[in-house]
Design a protein around this nucleic acid. Structure first.
Length: 153
DNA sequence: GCCAACGTTGGC
DNA sequence: GCCAACGTTGGC
């Protein structure tokens, strides 16, 4: 089992949206490295849900991977912002996963908190210039994140 | 709104 | 294959 961190702008899709929907296709990923991470995910993996471009940005909750090898339908939808006319129908370029809502953390872990508690070696998103929207999280780091996010004040 | 960092595109 | 131009991300 592996841990991931997935970013979303809350104005586009927030943890509350996922809570309401219960499950969603994690669509719109158009970066090869992020896609490769998604295709290496397995059912049962956990994903920390990070709100980017938020005030403040940070980790808000946890989801689980509920399906893998999912074809991102938006690549074939001409009306979609994520339409990719060059993706072959018989070999779709953009594969992704379905994620399922698990929990909203009692403690929001802001980017400032994360920088206080972790180093750039611990968390890829703390590395300067890293914009990847899907990144792996080491299990030891994930455990520490969970303790911080769930601890009583 | 600014801009640094990075990825992609396309001319050559 | 190089690299300039451009687009995007995302913190601030």
């Amino acid at each position: 089992m592996a841990y991931w961190l997935i970013k979303s702008e809350p104005e586009a899709y927030s943890i509350d949206d996922l809570k309401a929907a219960k499950t969603t296709i994690w669509d719109g990923i158009r970066n090869y490295q992020a896609r490769n991470y998604l295709t290496s995910a397995r059912v049962g993996d956990f994903a920390f849900f990070y709100h980017s471009n938020a005030k403040p940005p940070g980790i808000v909750g946890l989801a689980t991977v509920s399906a893998v090898d999912v074809t991102d339908p938006t690549q074939f939808d001409p009306g979609s912002h994520y339409y990719d006319a060059t993706s072959p129908h018989d070999a779709p370029r953009w594969k992704t996963v379905k994620v399922k809502y698990k929990e909203k953390f009692p403690n929001f872990l802001s980017l400032d908190d994360l920088r206080e508690q972790f180093t750039a070696d611990d968390l890829i998103i703390l590395r300067k210039g890293t914009r990847l929207s899907v990144t792996p999280v080491d299990e030891v780091i994930a455990d520490r994140l969970l303790v911080l996010a769930r601890a009583k004040h």
